[in-house]
């Protein structure tokens, strides 16, 4: 389960892409965890994530906050997606104060997350790096498409759908935000960053326009 790892792209866009998640350790602390998961989620919402949700109910694109919170069970891994280190720092400060005992993981540029932890009075416990993509790379979709679709680590966003939606933007049938919303809905875990996707779509359309 490395769904929030392996995000691709330039440092410039990755620096505006953070996912916060909470999880219980099965066999250790899952009993009585549902109210804690709800309290965690309220903290996430307080800091205005650009996407949020949980795999069973889906993301904010398809489910209300109450539907998402009502779906929580001991296996739930609720997520919030943020675009600034300050938001992450404030979330971590609130989570430290709440002392829920849930394991909290932040995905993002590691040096930035370390600063957020330090400012929140936390010391990172365990780290994970992506070591890249290997094997038959000629089978991969084009890199720019992958930067968008791979924000859903379960590959629920079809590269063909991304191409279609970008084509709609390119031909002025849709705004970038409308096209990105179609993609956001497909990511059930809600870890897709729609703001970053809009930036990437605009870049792609701009590149196409200038090439023409």
């Amino acid at each position: 389960m490395t769904h929030t790892l392996h995000r691709l792209g330039s440092l410039e866009t990755l620096e505006k892409d953070f996912v916060v998640m909470a999880m219980t350790a099965k066999g250790f602390n899952e009993e009585g965890s549902i109210p804690k998961l709800r309290e965690y989620f309220e903290i996430i919402l307080k800091h205005k994530p650009v996407n949020y949700g949980e795999v069973m109910a889906g993301s904010r694109s398809i489910a209300s906050v109450s539907q998402i919170m009502d779906s929580f069970n001991i296996s739930s891994v609720p997520h919030g997606v943020f675009t600034t280190p300050k938001q992450v720092e404030d979330v971590l400060k609130d989570l430290k104060k709440a002392d829920l005992g849930l394991s909290i993981v932040v995905s993002g540029v590691l040096s930035e997350v370390e600063k957020c932890c330090r400012n929140a009075g936390l010391r990172p416990h365990t780290l994970e790096h992506s070591l890249g993509i290997w094997g038959k790379k000629e089978k991969l979709p084009q890199t720019k498409i992958l930067e968008i679709t791979n924000m859903c680590g379960h590959s629920m966003i079809s590269p063909r759908l991304a191409e279609r939606e970008i084509g709609e933007v390119s031909s002025k049938k849709k705004k970038p935000e409308e096209a990105v919303e179609v993609l956001t809905r497909c990511c059930r875990c809600s870890i897709f960053n729609p703001e970053r996707a809009v930036v990437l779509v605009k870049e792609m359309v701009g590149e196409k326009s200038s090439a023409e």
Partner: peptide, 9 residues
């Protein structure tokens, strides 16, 4: 970019 377990568990 990667994942950081912040040690709150």
């Amino acid at each position: 970019a990667g994942k950081t377990n912040v040690g709150l568990g």
